[in-house]
Design a protein around this nucleic acid. Structure first.
Length: 741
DNA sequence: AGCACGCCGACT
DNA sequence: GTCGGCGTGCTC
C-alpha cells in the first residue's frame, strides 16, 4: 500500500459539461491511491446543488481555491480511462482551437449514456447463428419459402451471426426466422461476439481496378503506419468505394481498425451492405437515426476492439480506437461535417489532427473537393490522388445551359425543358428535377395592397404548405392556418408567389398524364425509412419523374435517370456569402453525376437567366477543376479563405439594440488587445437580422496569420465572458465558419 | 446550462 | 398573509 500524504491529498482538476471556460478542482477520495487516478476517467462530483459527471483532466499538488473550499469527489466511475492519451490530447487541442469549454468538448466525445454516468459495459444485442445443420444446408432447397431462404443465406454469409436489427433488412423477417428456429437450423448465439482477430477478414472478391484506382490504393497502402493526408478526387462512378475497400482490407490484415466518416444523408444502407458483403469482421454503425443505446454499443464495441470498422457521421469522430489504422472521410466537401451549434468543430479538420496524433493516414474523398482541400493538395501538404475516369463504360453526361430570359415558365418549367422531359418519358426513362425550395410557394401576397405573409418572429416570409393548409416559417417553429382574406385590406385576391417542390409536384401530373411523380424533400422523408422506401421505388422503376431538393443530389444513384434539370440554378449565383459559389458548383457537379449510367448517356439541363455567368460557363467548359482554379484565384485576390483564416462572433438577444452595442464594445476592446493586424469586420446585422424572436448581429475576424488570429481570440474570449455580465444576450464563436448566416 | 436566492404582483 | 413570476449570480 503506497503512502498517502494526509496533509496534502492530491487535487483533482476536472472538466464539467457546462458552458464555462474554466476547470474545477476537487479533493481526491482519501482511500484512493494517486496512481489509480488517470486523466480521462469519469467521476461523479457535487456541483452547486446537484451532482454532475466530471472528466478528470489532471492530478495536481495545489489548487488556486483554498483547501477547505474543495469538495470531495462522490465516486470514481471508470477504473481506467475510456479514452487513450492521444485522444485526450485531441480534445484539449479542439477546445483550444475552437475556443469551446473543455467539459463540453469531452461531452461531445462520449455517447449520451456515458455522458450521464452509465457504466461502460458493452451490452451486445442477441445474435442469431446457424446450427451445424443450418450451416450444411443448401439454401436452394428453400425456394418455396423465399423469406427463409433469404435469412438463411444472410446467416451463412455472417459467421458471427446477425442481430435482430440486421435481420430486419429482410421485410417481415420474424415469422420466417421462427420457422428456421423451429427447424433447428438457427439458434440464439451464446457468449460474446467473437473478437475480430479470430475471424477470416475478407469474404467478397475485390473488383478489378483500373490503373488510377490501383495507383491510389498502393499509394495509401504504402503510407499505412504513419501520418499523411490523401485527397482522393474521384468523379462520380469512378469507383472510390472500391478504392476504400481495398485499402481497408490492408488495414484489417494488419489487425487494425478503420474509422469511416460520412455525411448525414449519405449514410445509406447500401454502403453498409457493400462493406458487410466484403468484410467478415464486425462492423459498427453510428448515426443520428439510431437510438442512444445503439450508438453507445457502437462506441463501446470499437473502444473494446470487438469491431474493426466503424461507419459513422460527424459525432463518431471521437470514438476510441485501441488499434487505430486509418481514417476515411468521404464526401469531404460536405458542410454537414461542420457542427453548426454549440461545439462548432469541423469533423474534417479534427480528423486530420487526430490522424496526426495517432500517426495514421487520413483519406479525404470527394468528386468535388472543398477549395481548402484542393489548395492543400496543390501546395503539396496533401497527397493528391485522382480518379478521372468513370469505371465501366459509363459516358459523361451532356450538360447544357438553358437560357430562360424572356421565356414564359409554366410552374418554373420552360417550354424547351418541357419538350425534353416529354421525349425522355416517351423513351420510358426517368427524369430528375431539382428545385431547392420545399413547400408550395415561398410567398403569399395580396394583389390589392401588396401585403405579404411574414413571420412574426423572423425576418422571413411564411412559406405556403398547401396540403396541410398552413403558412409555415422555415426558420422557427412558427405556423398558422392559411388566411383567406388579406389581414391588411380585407381583399380576397391572396396569391401564392414563387415556386416550391409541393407546387411543382401538383402540376406535373396535368403536364404528363399517366406518369408517376415522387417528391423527395424534408417534408416527404421525415418518417424513418421513408427515404429508403422512395429510393427503392425509384430504382425499381415505379417512378417516372423524381422531384426534390438538394438532398437528392447527395450520394444516391438512379441508374435509369437520363435527364436531370435544375429549375432554379440562379438562386445560388448571387449571394453575400462567398462560400455559395463553391456550394453551387459542387451541387451542380453532384447533380451531373446522377445522370446517365452504363449504356445510357445522360443529359443535364440548367435553367438560368445568367447563361454568361463565369461560374456556369467555366464549370461546363472546364469542369469542376476549372471552376476551382478560377474560384481559388478569386479567393487569393480577395485574401479570403483558404488564403486567410476567419472566426465569426455571433450575438443574439431579444432586445433589438443590445447586440450591436455589445459587438461595438467587443470591437473596441479587440482593437486594444491585438498586437497584429487582424481585420475586424462589422458589427453587421446577420443576414437574417431577426430569427425566432431574437435579434442577431455578428463580427467577423480575419487574418492571413492563423497564429495571430488565434492569439487575439485567446485573450478576447475571457474578456467577452466578463462583459456578458450585463446579461440578456448570448454569444458564440465560430472558428472557420462555413456558413456566414 | 441548471439551480437557488430574492424581491414585487394576484390569489386562497 | 403567501404562492410564484423570472432577474441575478454562482458553481471547485
Amino acid at each position: 500500500m503506497p503512502e498517502l500524504p494526509q496533509d496534502h491529498p492530491p487535487v483533482l482538476r476536472v472538466a464539467i459539461d457546462v458552458p464555462l471556460h474554466r476547470l474545477f478542482d476537487y479533493a481526491a477520495p482519501e482511500t484512493i491511491a494517486p496512481e489509480a487516478l488517470k486523466p480521462g476517467q469519469r467521476l461523479a462530483v457535487p456541483f452547486g446543488s446537484t451532482q454532475k459527471i466530471a472528466y478528470l483532466v489532471g492530478v495536481e499538488e495545489v489548487s488556486e481555491v483554498s483547501r477547505k473550499q474543495l469538495k470531495p469527489v462522490t465516486r470514481i466511475l471508470d477504473q481506467a480511462p475510456l479514452l487513450a492519451p492521444d485522444d485526450l490530447r485531441l480534445l484539449h487541442w479542439a477546445a483550444r482551437y475552437y475556443h469551446h469549454p473543455l467539459g463540453e468538448v469531452f461531452a461531445a466525445a462520449f455517447p449520451v449514456g456515458l455522458r450521464q454516468g452509465k457504466a461502460a459495459i458493452l451490452d451486445l444485442p442477441i445474435r442469431y447463428v446457424l446450427t451445424d445443420a443450418g450451416r450444411a444446408l443448401d439454401s436452394a432447397g428453400l425456394h418455396r419459402a423465399p423469406k427463409q431462404k433469404q435469412l438463411l443465406e444472410a446467416l451463412q454469409n455472417s459467421p458471427n451471426g446477425l442481430s435482430e436489427e440486421q435481420l430486419a433488412a429482410v421485410e417481415n423477417w420474424r415469422p420466417a426466422l421462427k420457422q428456421l428456429l423451429a427447424k433447428d437450423w438457427v439458434k440464439i448465439g451464446d457468449g460474446d461476439m467473437p473478437a475480430d482477430a479470430a475471424l477470416p477478414l475478407i469474404k467478397g472478391t475485390p473488383i478489378e481496378c483500373n490503373p488510377e484506382q490501383s495507383a491510389a490504393i498502393s499509394e495509401v497502402c504504402d503510407g499505412l503506419g504513419r501520418f499523411g493526408v490523401f485527397l482522393l478526387e474521384g468523379v462520380t462512378g469512378s469507383g472510390k468505394t472500391e478504392v476504400y475497400m481495398q485499402i481497408i482490407r490492408e488495414v484489417l490484415e494488419r489487425g487494425q481498425q478503420v474509422l469511416v466518416l460520412l455525411p448525414e444523408i449519405t449514410l445509406t444502407p447500401q454502403l453498409e451492405n457493400r462493406f458487410r458483403q466484403r468484410f467478415a469482421v464486425n462492423i459498427a454503425v453510428s448515426h443520428s437515426k439510431l437510438t442512444d443505446t445503439q450508438r453507445q454499443t457502437a462506441w463501446l464495441s470499437m473502444q473494446q476492439g470487438v469491431c474493426s470498422i466503424l461507419l459513422g457521421t460527424r459525432s463518431a469522430l471521437f470514438t476510441p480506437l485501441p488499434r487505430p489504422g486509418l481514417i476515411i472521410l468521404d464526401e469531404e466537401h460536405d458542410t454537414s461535417f461542420k457542427q453548426q451549434e454549440g461545439f462548432r468543430f469541423s469533423a474534417r479538420d479534427v480528423a486530420i489532427v487526430r490522424g496526426k496524433l495517432l500517426n495514421i493516414p487520413v483519406v479525404l474523398g470527394s468528386a468535388t473537393p472543398s477549395l481548402e482541400s484542393l489548395y492543400n493538395a496543390q501546395s503539396g501538404r496533401y497527397r493528391w490522388l485522382q480518379l478521372p475516369n468513370r469505371a465501366g463504360n459509363a459516358s459523361a453526361p451532356r450538360v447544357r445551359l438553358l437560357d430562360i430570359r424572356n421565356k414564359a415558365l409554366h410552374e418554373g418549367i420552360s417550354a424547351a425543358l418541357l419538350a425534353e422531359i416529354r421525349q425522355t418519358l416517351d423513351k420510358n426513362e426517368q427524369v430528375l428535377l431539382f428545385l431547392n425550395r420545399r413547400g408550395f410557394a415561398p410567398t403569399l401576397i395580396c394583389h390589392d395592397c401588396g401585403w405579404v405573409a411574414r413571420c412574426a418572429h423572423c425576418d422571413a416570409n411564411l412559406v405556403i404548405h398547401f396540403r396541410e393548409q398552413k403558412l409555415r416559417c422555415h426558420h422557427c417553429a412558427g405556423e398558422q392556418p392559411i388566411v383567406k382574406f388579406c389581414p391588411s385590406c380585407t381583399g380576397s385576391t391572396l396569391t401564392p408567389l414563387g415556386l416550391g417542390t409541393e407546387r411543382v409536384e401538383q402540376v406535373l401530373p396535368t403536364l404528363f398524364p399517366g406518369k408517376t411523380v415522387i417528391r423527395l424533400d424534408r417534408d416527404t422523408t421525415q418518417r424513418k425509412g421513408s427515404l429508403e422506401k422512395y429510393l427503392r421505388q425509384i430504382n425499381e422503376g415505379q417512378a417516372d419523374i423524381i422531384l426534390g431538393t438538394q438532398m437528392l443530389a447527395k450520394g444516391h444513384h438512379f441508374p435509369n435517370v437520363t435527364l436531370v434539370a435544375i429549375l432554379d440554378t440562379d438562386s445560388g449565383l448571387y449571394s453575400i456569402d462567398f462560400h455559395s459559389a463553391e456550394k453551387l458548383a459542387q451541387m451542380i457537379v453532384q447533380v451531373i453525376g446522377r445522370a446517365g449510367r452504363e449504356d445510357k448517356p445522360g443529359t443535364v439541363i440548367l435553367q438560368t437567366r445568367h447563361p454568361e455567368h463565369p461560374l456556369l460557363t467555366t464549370l461546363i467548359r472546364e469542369g469542376y477543376n476549372g471552376f476551382a482554379r478560377q474560384a481559388l484565384d478569386e479567393r487569393r485576390a480577395a485574401a479570403l479563405p483558404p488564403f486567410s483564416h476567419q472566426a465569426l462572433l455571433r450575438v443574439q438577444a431579444s432586445d433589438a439594440f443590445r447586440p450591436k452595442v455589445f459587438l461595438e464594445e467587443v470591437k473596441k476592446l479587440a482593437g486594444k488587445l491585438q498586437a497584429g493586424e487582424t481585420l475586424i469586420l462589422g458589427p453587421v446585422a446577420a443576414p437574417m437580422a431577426k430569427r425566432a424572436g431574437l435579434y442577431r448581429y455578428q463580427l467577423l475576424f480575419q487574418d492571413v496569420n492563423r497564429q495571430a488570429l488565434q492569439q487575439l481570440l485567446d485573450s478576447l474570449t475571457p474578456a467577452i465572458d466578463k462583459m456578458k455580465k450585463e446579461k440578456h444576450l448570448r454569444w458564440s464563436l465560430d472558428v472557420d465558419p462555413v456558413d456566414l448566416y
